[in-house]
Simulated assay, not measured.
Amino acid sequence: MTGSIFSRRRMMVATGAALATPSLVLAQEVPVPETHRRNIMSFTTQRWQDHFDELGKGAIVADISSRALHFWSGDGEIYNVYPSSVPRTDELTKRGYTKIVRKRVGPDWTPTASMMERNPELKYMPPGPGNPLGTHAMYLDWPAYLIHGTHDTRKIGRQSSDGCIGLYNHKVEELFALAEIGTQVRLF
């Protein structure tokens, strides 16, 4: 009886080793280029040079697929990455180049015509805890598109907006202080 237990153990070890070997070999053979590395949050590394000719007053890249907003200061000394909410659908997603044209602490919110069409119960909201724009907003030169905060932290990291890029309130406050009017923005 002892001989059969030993044989079973031996067979199990040999089978486990045989199954693990291809995975170990593959894991060692696949180099990951620096531009495709991802951190634990799935943010893809970005370089401002891949999106803009110069930094100017600063640069923001909103990466819709990895749900991250990248910011570089105009002098290139600051590079921050923020988790973000992104538009729910491709129809709501505007992609391309724009810039920050206005900033506001305590923004008020008025639903767009398309929002009202989907939900006629939506109404104007003054600044405050229920406001979907959170504590700070940066308006882009595309009408009705903003980078703003949110009081609903469940939205961050998800496809949950009607076109805007949302950040945690404490993160949008940080970005608001860093990003100047005229900061170039790319959504892709």
Rank of each mutant, 00 (worst) to 15 (best):
F6M: 10
S7F: 09
R8N: 10
R10D: 02
R10L: 15
M12C: 12
V13L: 15
A14K: 09
T15S: 12
A17T: 13
A17G: 14
A18R: 01
A18M: 14
S23E: 01
S23K: 03
L24E: 06
A27M: 10
P31W: 05
P31C: 08
T35V: 13
H36K: 13
R38Q: 15
N39W: 10
I40F: 13
I40P: 01
F43V: 12
T44G: 08
T44A: 11
T44C: 10
T44E: 14
T45H: 03
T45V: 12
T45C: 00
W48T: 01
H51C: 04
K57V: 03
G58I: 05
A59C: 11
I60M: 05
V61C: 02
V61D: 00
A62Y: 05
A62P: 04
I64W: 06
I64C: 09
S65M: 13
S66L: 11
S66M: 09
S66E: 12
H70R: 02
S73G: 05
S73W: 02
G74L: 10
D75T: 09
D75A: 07
G76S: 03
G76D: 02
I78M: 02
Y79F: 04
V81S: 09
S84N: 07
S85I: 06
P87W: 06
R88E: 15
D90L: 11
T93C: 09
T93Q: 04
T93L: 05
R95V: 13
G96H: 06
T98M: 14
T98F: 13
T98A: 10
K99C: 03
I100C: 08
I100M: 06
V101P: 02
V101Y: 01
R104N: 08
R104G: 05
T110G: 01
P111D: 08
T112C: 09
A113H: 06
S114R: 11
S114N: 11
E117A: 14
E117H: 10
E117L: 11
E117I: 03
N119Y: 03
E121Y: 09
E121D: 15
L122E: 04
K123L: 00
M125Y: 01
P126F: 01
P127K: 09
P129V: 11
P129A: 14
N131E: 07
P132M: 07
L133G: 06
L133Q: 09
H136P: 04
A137Q: 02
W142N: 04
W142F: 04
Y145Q: 04
L146T: 07
L146W: 07
T150M: 00
T150V: 03
H151I: 01
D152E: 15
T153V: 14
I156M: 13
R158I: 05
Q159N: 13
S161F: 12
S161L: 11
D162W: 12
G163M: 14
G163F: 08
C164A: 12
I165F: 07
I165A: 04
G166R: 15
L167V: 08
L167I: 06
Y168M: 12
N169K: 04
N169L: 04
N169Y: 00
N169Q: 03
H170L: 03
K171R: 13
V172P: 05
V172N: 07
E173A: 15
E174A: 04
L175N: 05
A177V: 00
A179K: 06
E180T: 00
E180Q: 13
I181G: 00
G182N: 02
G182V: 08
T183R: 03
V185G: 07
R186H: 06
F188H: 10
F188T: 08
